[in-house]
Design a protein around this nucleic acid. Structure first.
Lengths: 226, 226
DNA sequence: TTCTCAGTAAGTGTCGACAATATAGTAATT
DNA sequence: AATTACTATATTGTCGACACTTACTGAGAA
């Protein structure tokens, strides 16, 4: 399981493995954002040929983690406040819709599973004051489950396959363990309620507010720093 | 200019050119949807090495036009009603948001440009009863301009870079020149008005209805055929 | 007949080398 | 001194060959 992403499947080929390693490295900043990628150098460091490395680079490009220019080379995508806010805008739209679809398409079993997960989060929260755990793992788990619950393959691909790698990268590199943990937990509860009630319209609205609140939280933080 | 997509840039490398040719071929059905792709065979037919072909295949995969399995091979993505409806759901969410952002971020010049374009569509419509022209080219132009007007690179990438290739493929292969042309034109007008008024909320709502109407139109068609 | 299990053929993954292109540094000219 | 032209170097794009995996074919046993 790579980075807990539920859509990644077992890496069989060496290009897959290198891709996953580089994914980790980019997300956690070992390979610095904005840095240029030297194919010969990286190929040597991973002990593979350039062809194989290029295959891995192609997958990273699919996730929008690197950008390539013909005859020039690849760079790791640059982290910026503007870029982060753009992602939040897309998430608000897509996850809002995913939530609406989840209210329509989720099975009863999936809904029960989500409620169980939320209870675990609740106890973990009470136990260790929850901020770190909840923010880092629980939050992503929650969002992943809703997305998968939409049963819409396009939504799942775009969100889990591409956008969430970027989300993780920003979380890692900007060190975001916000004080919204408690509030976010309540919001998650209400979203699940709406899904369980099969109220797609409300579910979408709550999810959009939930994500918009995170975005505004960041905007405020930025404003304060200046 | 590849398939009129405003985000594609000049193809410099041979892999680029082969990619564009294959893109055309897949969109218009020359390479049949669902068919398996033989690397040696295709490489020979395009007179290039397998490496170069694989590079092109990687880009097609980025557009979600083909799917690859390790050690097995690539297939052109399958066209299905369910798949088409999934795309409409994603478009409703993303283009709705793009429209909201366009109302916020479009420059006055861009808005004027859109109004001009719409007038051209109007006259063309009057001239040739418009269904074919408007549906095929004008509609896409309109949607592209709104998306670009969002000034959100993530939205632009996902919609123009990936999803709209699929949209074009479905339009080609399902032969969709719907009788919604006239109605769609009016809807486009109102959307531009909302953008010009900088009313993001209304703009998003109108765009969502516009796309949802197309989706329902297709759902009805399907229901009738059965 | 049907199932299992080689053996073989075809296809994909990986490699190293060569060709084409861009970058950096140097020298010459204005 | 600044700018341009050119050369040298490094990097990317492309190629053909080999290694490994998969899928098919056919022979033999239950």
């Amino acid at each position: 399981m790579a980075l807990n992403n539920p859509t990644t499947q077992a890496a069989v080929t060496t290009a897959d493995k290198v891709f996953e390693q580089m994914l980790h490295a980019i997300v956690d900043g070992t390979i610095k954002s904005g840095s240029k990628i030297s194919e010969p150098e990286l190929a040597k460091s991973y002990q593979i040929s350039r062809s194989t490395l290029r295959e891995a680079l192609n997958r990273l490009e699919k996730c929008h983690l690197i950008e390539r220019k013909a005859n020039v080379g690849s760079r790791v995508v640059e982290c910026s406040i503007a870029g982060l806010l753009e992602i939040y805008v897309v998430r608000e739209a897509l996850e809002g819709m995913a939530c609406r679809q989840a209210a329509i398409n989720m099975t009863e079993d999936e809904i029960i599973e989500m409620k169980v997960m939320l209870k675990q989060h609740a106890s973990a929260k009470a136990l260790r004051d929850g901020i770190a755990y909840y923010q880092e793992e629980g939050d992503l788990d929650f969002h992943y489950k809703v997305i998968l619950g939409s049963h819409n393959q396009q939504l799942i691909n775009i969100l889990c396959g591409q956008l969430y790698h970027l989300v993780r990268m920003y979380r890692c590199q900007f060190g975001m363990n916000s004080p919204r943990a408690t509030k976010a937990f309540d919001e998650h509860s209400r979203i699940i309620e709406a899904i369980a009630d099969r109220d797609g319209e409300l579910a979408e609205m709550l999810m959009r507010r939930h994500i918009a609140a995170s975005r505004k939280n960041i905007e405020n933080k930025i404003a304060q720093q200046q």
